[in-house]
Computed example of a mutant assay.
Amino acid sequence: MPNADHNWQHDILRALRGPAVPADTPGPAAPAPSPRPAPAAAPAATERPRPAVPEQPRTPAPAASTRPARTTAPDSLPALDTAMAAVARRPTRGEPAVVRGARALRRIVSGSASREVAVLTRTAEVLQRPVTTGRQIAVTSIRGGAGKTTVTALLGTTYAHYRQDPVLLVEADPALGSLPLRLGAASLRWTTADLADIVAPQMSLLDITGYLVQLPDNAWLLPGSQGRIGAMVDTATYERVMVALRRYFGVTVVDCETLPAEVARAALSAAQARVLAAPATLDGVAGTYAVLEWLRSLPPHVIEGTVVALSVMSPRPGIDVEAAAERLATTGARVHVLPHDRHLAAGGRLRTDLLSRPARLAAARLAAEVFELSRKRR
């Protein structure tokens, strides 16, 4: 779309990729229909209503990827090996029973329950606001173990719970990413790289969802791999997929590679809002602050559309979390603290019913602010 926001995204892409990119390089665009024979039929999917977002005008397709095209349909593989699944323990609740009881008693005595309901009501109103075009939200971090995939799963499940239009979660970290495991996917078949060779403008939402993993609450997952180390997704493949899928889903949350990977940079530049996951540790906060300072050198829209999700990894963090959040906020980015939660810290499938109340409230507030920032960008 030839508008101001489109132009600044191109400027960021050029800044991130370096001077070798010509100034008139076109941005991500919808792919042209593939001339090769259609792949094997996609698995059947439950029909979902199309989101109330208009189709985007088609523009010239970017240069084709050098990755060889798949000629046969992939086999469906389990997301987690049966023997590996056997080592998992029963999932724990986010808070011990004693803490939950004491919290409930305080809410009754202090009358905070009504205030909590009012906050949730306002948050729900923000999350349910309509969009005219699909919003894309990129989640990344500066290193592994920062809570990036957990934040992606929290955002995606929150949007799917509150919104009526379809929500898509994309794994753009194919090197054994854990997003399918976090979302409880039973099996994996088609991947991000596969869909780049399949998606075409004339396809309907029902056609598209046949290649995706269905999740609860009208959410869908596009995995980056089948749980094995394989070819990495290049920037051209990522751009083709994301531009083509934008018109089908009201909100798309992308689990990116860690910075400074090329696909992660492209995802940050093209998204309407960015989330930088950071652990509440001294080195995590220091590294995140350095990245935010770099983002400040880009056009102001970038830092203004960035939110830091500061995750407390242990019951007794080694830093003053509130002071760290204030320091990060001096860069102009929004900062949200995700409190320690035993269920999140244990890994494995994310079950929102097992989250502690503080973690649920913090996740909802984070999702609402990120979504509101994305609505301000075209």
Rank of each mutant, 00 (worst) to 15 (best):
H6R: 11
N7G: 13
R14A: 08
L16A: 11
P35D: 14
P37H: 03
A42C: 08
P43Q: 10
A45V: 09
T46L: 14
P51V: 11
P54L: 15
E55G: 15
E55D: 15
A64P: 06
T66G: 15
R67N: 13
R67E: 12
R70G: 10
T72K: 13
S76D: 13
T92M: 15
R93L: 14
P96L: 03
G101F: 14
L105V: 14
R107C: 10
A113H: 13
V119K: 12
T123Q: 09
L127H: 08
T133I: 14
T133H: 12
Q136I: 13
R143H: 11
A146M: 08
T152Y: 00
A153T: 04
A160R: 00
A160D: 00
A160C: 07
P166T: 06
V170T: 10
V170R: 00
A172H: 03
G177W: 02
S178A: 13
R189P: 09
T192K: 08
D194R: 06
V199Y: 00
P201F: 08
S204T: 04
I208Q: 03
D217Q: 13
A219G: 04
L221S: 07
P223R: 02
I229K: 09
A236N: 10
T237Y: 04
Y238Q: 12
A244V: 04
R247Y: 11
V254D: 02
V254P: 05
D255T: 05
D255F: 02
A261E: 09
A266E: 02
L268A: 01
S269W: 05
R274N: 08
V275A: 03
V275C: 06
G284F: 02
G284E: 01
E293M: 10
W294A: 14
L298N: 00
E304D: 14
G305C: 07
T306R: 06
L310M: 08
R316E: 15
D320R: 12
D320E: 13
R327W: 05
T330P: 10
T330M: 12
R334Y: 08
H336W: 03
H336L: 09
D341W: 10
T352M: 12
P358T: 07
R360E: 10
R365P: 05
L366T: 00
A367C: 00
K376G: 11
R377A: 14
R378Y: 13
